[in-house]
């Protein structure tokens, strides 16, 4: 079953004198359980596409469905609520709330979902265990390394049991060991828990690990290959 479908997705930025066509008609379908990389040089439209799929931005034209919901129709708090319930986010940096501990950061998402306290604590600890940071539960982000912070971010993204996780260049600020660890973690979650991951990257190590690679250039899909 398709988790995400986009139809003739276009995005034009009018901020400067010359309109910039970031996306020029993207038709993309992502199935449940995929481990997909959106790849391309700077300005190819990876992040724009990720933002539109994630409901962080509105397209100039075209549509995005997440399962049965056409998210391009959602506005304001409805859209925010949809993101909260259905999508997990991992950003390049500044993922975590610096004044909360690792555990509290994970619980925060569930708090926004109004889950009971006991469930929140239990699931946060489970997730921290899954990302190998159980002993860092009470550390604040400032006391964690970049790689550890990204693993907490992955745990936080999974807290809401989302339909899929979007990761915008998650390894951009990481050294090679941390990158490998994070990729191992995401691959493991993908295989064992069937979590759908879509990430943008131009990091070859990440591309090598992806099972489907969608190449973008000038806002168009250049190639779309699934590894066997």
């Amino acid at each position: 079953m398709a988790v995400i479908r986009t139809k003739d997705l276009k995005k034009t930025y009018n901020s400067s004198m010359v309109p910039v066509h970031a996306l020029n008609g993207i038709d993309l379908t992502i199935e449940k359980g995929e481990f997909t990389a959106l790849v391309g040089p700077s300005g190819s439209g990876k992040t724009t596409l990720l933002n539109l799929i994630g409901g962080l931005d509105q397209p100039t034209s075209g549509k995005v469905w997440v399962e049965e919901t056409e998210i391009t129709q959602l506005k304001g708090n409805d859209l925010i609520d949809f993101r909260l319930k259905s999508i997990g986010f991992v950003f390049q940096a500044y993922n975590l709330i610096p004044v909360l501990t690792a555990q509290e950061n994970i619980e925060f998402i569930m708090l926004l979902q109004k889950r009971p306290k006991k469930e929140r604590q239990q699931r946060a600890l489970e997730l921290l265990n899954a990302v190998g940071l159980k002993d860092r539960a009470h550390n604040r982000p400032g006391q964690l390394s970049g790689g550890q912070q990204q693993r907490v971010a992955v745990a936080r993204a999974l807290a809401a049991k989302p339909k899929f996780v979007l990761a915008d260049e998650p390894t951009a600020n990481l050294d090679s060991t941390s990158t490998a660890n994070l990729l191992d973690l995401m691959a493991e979650l993908n295989q064992q828990e069937k979590v759908t991951f879509i990430f943008s990257t131009h990091d070859q190590r990440v591309i090598d690990r992806a099972r489907r690679v969608v190449w973008l250039e000038d806002g168009r899909i250049l190639s779309d290959e699934t590894k066997m």
């Binding site: 994630g54 708090n77 986010f89 993922n95 709330i97 926004l112 979902q113």
Partner: peptide, 16 residues
């Protein structure tokens, strides 16, 4: 700004 953007992205609504 970035942190607030993140909070809104992950689902913190305007009221909160």
């Amino acid at each position: 700004v970035r942190e607030l953007g993140m909070l809104m992205a992950v689902g913190m609504n305007k009221f909160r």
